[in-house]
Design a protein around this nucleic acid. Structure first.
Lengths: 217, 217
DNA sequence: ACCTGAACACCGTTCAAGT
DNA sequence: ACCTGAACACCGTTCAAGT
């Protein structure tokens, strides 16, 4: 049964790819080092993955599946949504090297399974399908954006990428403004180091709560 | 004055890099093709940009600067914030190839100039510095996330990356659920094609408006 | 039918050698 | 001091040649 053998090999390649990614990061993954890990010719992979991007997409699928972000039912929707979002955020923060291609890979069935669970949960809570989908994409946007900001923080080497003070225009009399900007500069670092997901997510959940209340009236 | 010559060359390299990016995309940019465009040895660039990432970071700076997203003052803060966010979104959608490295490049002074303007505007509207910074990062998260989703939509070749129906579990008696999921599947495409920024941004602005009202009481 | 090694056309970066 | 060409160690992918 060649189908079964193919399926096994595919999974083996993806598992090996995830191993490589865990060791050297997504950016350093290559067809060659995955094949070497399996003691096989790099060309053998092209039967299962016509392109490196196909291998990466399959690996991201498996990564999403392993992250297991969908929580138990039974939680109130706010907490349920929070758990999904924080679960995704933490999983991606654990493998920041995914970030550069979060926007360029195809979404597959694993990602859609999460969508389905999300929409189901929110519909059960009283949202319309349209509202639930809108909420889902808003949450995904915040998660992806938060991970990107977190990653670009991690990429910075020195403590200051450029000082806010250097940018404040030399406004003649505006000394109050200058003082406020000094406060901004001071707090900027603090904000960058904070858990990014706790910045955007509460705002979105608040807005959703208000939306639901308005719908029910 | 070597300083001036260096500055000129730096700008010339960045301009050439942006030309190349405009033609073939960020992913296809290389030290070699930028140098070729300027009829110079690829090695000459290493004096100004010790690494390809330095060239990319400088190019992103210039890209941000050219996008010119900070609108005129005088707009009410909601509209002002909306203009900044939509401006960023549209600029990045116009050059989607930036997306893969949105999370991996250092932020420079141009980005900080936008931060400063944003915080200044919201403080003038009555937000605290802390609230304004929080709002800024939330908006950036939504913009980046929206661009990522938009990009991953653009990356899809076929119309269906995987059908929702294929994922719905064969729940025995739950026929109402199945029907709802069919509706989800139908609307998913519509949502993916919609302007992503109009999904997350209104939610965030709503939450900010509520926050401001509460503060003022 | 399947797998492979060599080869192609790239890449970022190093470094000794030119001027 | 500055710039350069050749070279190193990679890369994704093609393809003719093996079994």
């Amino acid at each position: 049964m060649t189908k079964a053998r193919n399926a096994l090999n595919r999974a083996a390649y993806v598992a090996a790819a995830l191993d490589v990614i865990g060791e050297v990061g997504v950016d350093k993954l290559s067809m060659r080092n995955v094949a070497n890990r399996l003691n096989v010719s790099p060309m053998a992979m092209y039967k299962h993955f016509p392109t490196k991007d196909d291998l990466l997409a399959a690996s991201l699928e498996e990564f999403i599946s392993r992250a297991n972000v969908v929580p138990d039912a039974g939680l109130p929707w706010e907490q349920w949504v929070g758990r999904v979002a924080r679960g995704m955020y933490e999983a991606l923060c654990g493998e920041l090297s995914w970030v550069p291609l979060l926007g360029s890979l195809r979404v597959g069935s694993q990602a859609i399974a999460v969508t389905e669970a999300f929409v189901g949960k929110l519909c059960a809570a009283g949202f319309s399908v349209e509202q639930a989908l809108r909420a889902y994409f808003a949450v995904i946007q915040v998660v992806v954006g938060a991970v990107c900001l977190r990653a670009s923080l991690a990429a910075r080497t020195g403590p200051r990428p450029g000082s806010l003070d250097a940018v404040v225009p030399p406004s003649g009399p505006g000394s109050a403004r200058r003082e406020k900007m000094k406060a901004v500069s001071g707090e900027l670092e603090v904000f960058l180091r904070r858990d990014q997901i706790e910045i955007g997510l509460p705002l979105v959940i608040d807005a959703l709560r208000a939306q639901l209340k308005e719908t029910r009236i």
